[in-house]
Amino acid sequence: MNGIVDTIKNVLKETDLVLGWTTDPVTGVATPARFHDEKEAEQAVFDSTCAHNLAVHLPRLKDSRVGIVAKGCDARSVIELIIEHEVQREQLAVIGVGCGSLLDVKKIWRRYGYGVAIKDRDDSLLIGGEQVNRDEFIQRKCHGCLEADPDIYDVIAGEVTGEIPTDTVRPHPLHDMFVSLTPAERRSFWREQFSRCIRCYACREVCPMCFCRDVCIMQTQIPRWAGGAVDAKQSEMIQLIRVNHLAGRCTGCGECERACPVGIPLMLLLDEQNHAIEEMFAYGAGASLKARPPLLVFDVNKDIWGKG
């Protein structure tokens, strides 16, 4: 069993670069890094502040042999990218890491101050030397965690986590409130949420499955699905575009919501859609390399939802 540094060094023998994390010298928490040689790899870390889904970089590195450190959730994105031919499996070395839920660093900073010392060890979380309830500070996206260990890997670094007990899977923190709303109340809810949107497109930029990049229809005039104004209506439309484009493709990594600077609960939308897709097609994006995206196929005998 190898640590993260040795594993990356090994993988670098076969690849041009490895996507991983290093420690930010100012805050002391993990930040994404690219390692091109053994010397750089010395700086690699993996801990519970490695929240980013590094698969987002893969479609832009098509011409390179790439190594990537992937948690369970990140690996689903890798699988979905391979299914959609955006990434070639042969070009890729996946360094799997087990994950026991991630910390919401921003939440800690808001509470205890920017750059506060965070020590996360075996069920005890010390913030600025003070022992706190860890459960309070885990990432929202980890609430719905499906897989702590990657389903796709070439090598494992560190220890795997094992099966997640199903009773730990919790819905989105706003789920119970949201489902109790009437459609009209939901309209107001979304209008209020999207009135905060500043159209920074962070949700799109961090999404591994949003690989249209420069031609994204959130911003085009041909066609003009959404207007250019920054208001609740147009912001809602661009999210409707995202949700539609992610139908059967969203792996539920939660990065969009984590990246949103104004805290719009985007995963409420995507969780519901993923749930509908699961119900309709018994399909979960990124679950299997053999799967076919459900909206690119049909089944005359099974597609009977009794309408029409």
Binding site: C216, I217, T220, I222, P223, R224, W225, H245
Partner: peptide, 16 residues
């Protein structure tokens, strides 16, 4: 996904 295929006579913008 980026709506860059248009159906002549029924383009997205025409329908919108």
């Amino acid at each position: 996904p980026p709506s860059v295929i248009s159906l002549r006579g029924y383009t997205d913008n025409q329908l919108i």
